[in-house]
Nucleic acid binder design. Structure first.
Length: 183
DNA sequence: TGCACGATGAAC
DNA sequence: TTCATCGTGCAC
């Protein structure tokens, strides 16, 4: 299991979003190592992308998105869920990849289908906002044996307000995966 | 200082 | 289609 290097994140956001499929998200908390396989992602390209939070500019909330690649951007939505992103590209580019679903691999008791449930299952909350994903307690790694799969591209979920940006196929998932069979 | 609205999920 | 629930951003 190889931890992804900084250079992995310092690339085109769409490439990062595609390449994150099949990778392992690891969160070690209180001596418990939880592992989930990433099966669905969405790319948010930067301030010019009207669906991205960074389109609102640099604010206390989006600060992490404007920072270095390879850091976690965790935010609170709808008064009850957390969503986790991975910051991509150079500092100031303000782009990120939203992790939308994981498949439980180890020590994950709940299903992680959907960005809110993913965070709940992996015990990810606001305290991990701005956390370096090259750390030893919260990171992403390539599995020892990469599985073969087909990738599907679709429009992103819940961003209808973003005009033409809502139509672009910036959502990626592993074909046939149980988590993303609907919508 | 107030308020409309979410990168959601579950129920109906 | 509706609702739970509250932080964020922007209007005033």
């Amino acid at each position: 299991m190889q931890k992804l290097p900084r250079e992995f994140y310092d690339r085109k956001t769409i490439m990062v979003a595609r390449d994150l499929l099949g990778k392992l998200l690891i969160h070690v908390q209180g001596g418990v190592e939880r592992v989930g396989k990433i099966v669905e992602t969405e790319a948010y390209l930067g301030p010019h992308d009207l669906a991205a939070h960074s389109a609102r500019g640099l604010t206390p909330r989006t600060k992490v998105m404007f920072g270095l690649p390879g850091y976690a951007y965790v935010y609170f939505v709808y008064g009850m869920y957390f969503c986790m992103n991975v910051v991509t590209e150079r500092e100031g580019h303000a782009s990120a990849v939203l992790l939308r679903a994981i498949e439980p691999v180890k020590n994950v008791e709940e299903r992680g289908c959907g960005p809110g449930l993913l965070c709940r299952a992996m015990k990810i909350d606001k305290s991990l906002n701005g956390h370096d994903l090259l750390s030893d307690d919260f990171f992403i790694a390539a599995p020892a044996r990469a599985d073969v799969f087909q990738m599907v591209k679709r429009p992103r979920i819940g961003v209808d307000y973003a005009k033409h940006w809502a139509k672009r196929h910036l959502r990626f998932y592993i074909k046939g995966n149980a988590c993303v069979s609907r919508r």
